[in-house]
Design a protein around this nucleic acid. Structure first.
Lengths: 146, 146
DNA sequence: GCTTGACCTAAAGTTACCTTGAGGTTGCAC
DNA sequence: GTGCAACCTCAAGGTAACTTTAGGTCAAGC
């Protein structure tokens, strides 16, 4: 762990595109745990760049910071994660992506049917709900994408 | 426009699954414009159920209320939208979905390459960035999904 | 040894999207 | 005509994810 391998927060910010304040915020939330110099300044591992990259990607997939923390908590603290560490997390992420794509594809299909039949403005619609049954106490269209 | 066709807010809430407070909030934001009774109570068109359904779906696609308002502003106020009104909006939404799916598919492909090569924990990675070039002032991994 | 930019903490502010609460009014059923 | 659920407004509160501000400290170059 050569001293040159430790990055100050500004450097990490430059390399990830994140704001310094955001990185500190993530530390508060327990997503990242830098070392400290004797003068109390943060020093990050190079592997923390990946950790932050992971956070950014996972956020794009719609995960909240709390959920991301759960994933990241399976990574070792204080040392560079191993190949299989990252592979495990990557696979879990792939699952999330697959689910999202499936959901969007379904939505698109239903929407296409709606464009075809004009049902968004007419009587019965899969995207909307059948026979206005939500009016009978059903959950209604809000749950269409669930 | 039979009086029986006008819904009080609680009824609309039941049919959409939204909270009454959320519907009032959307009115504040200009997303929906109910009539008022002489006693100042809101009365909604049946087509407003679709309007709210549209909002819910669009939100799931990641649009903010402001963007949704832009789409909805092309619909007629105070009367039930026509078939072609909804078709136009549906098509625009389809475009959004297509873009989202394409982005996710790309991300998944890159992630797969990463799982295969283990690059998330190693040296060079498409999802991450080449040769750590972000360290040379490049934009960095944050922009991978843009 | 001193200046200056990068760093520190703690608290308050910001935006989006709502919910909750207080205090009052309406309208339908009996 | 009276009771009461459902409605009204306006203001404040809540969460997520940060940024900004204020007031100070650190460390590297000259």
């Amino acid at each position: 762990m050569d001293k040159n391998d430790l990055l100050p927060i500004g450097e990490l910010a430059r390399r990830t595109g994140l704001a310094v304040s955001a990185i500190r915020f993530y530390e508060d939330k327990g997503l990242i745990s830098p070392f400290r110099t004797m003068g109390n300044q943060r020093r990050f591992l190079r592997s923390d760049i990946r950790r932050l990259s992971f956070i950014l990607i996972a956020q794009r997939l719609g995960l909240g910071l709390a959920e991301i923390e759960v994933e990241l908590s399976t990574l070792p603290q204080g040392r560079t994660p191993s190949l299989s560490d990252w592979q495990r997390i990557s696979r879990s992420m792939r699952g999330q992506i697959d689910k999202k794509i499936a959901l969007l594809t379904l939505t698109r299909r239903k929407l296409d049917e709606c464009i075809g039949c004009g049902c968004l403005s007419l009587q019965r619609c899969q995207l909307y709900n059948r026979d206005d049954r939500a009016g009978n106490g059903g959950p209604g269209p809000r749950f269409v994408l669930d």
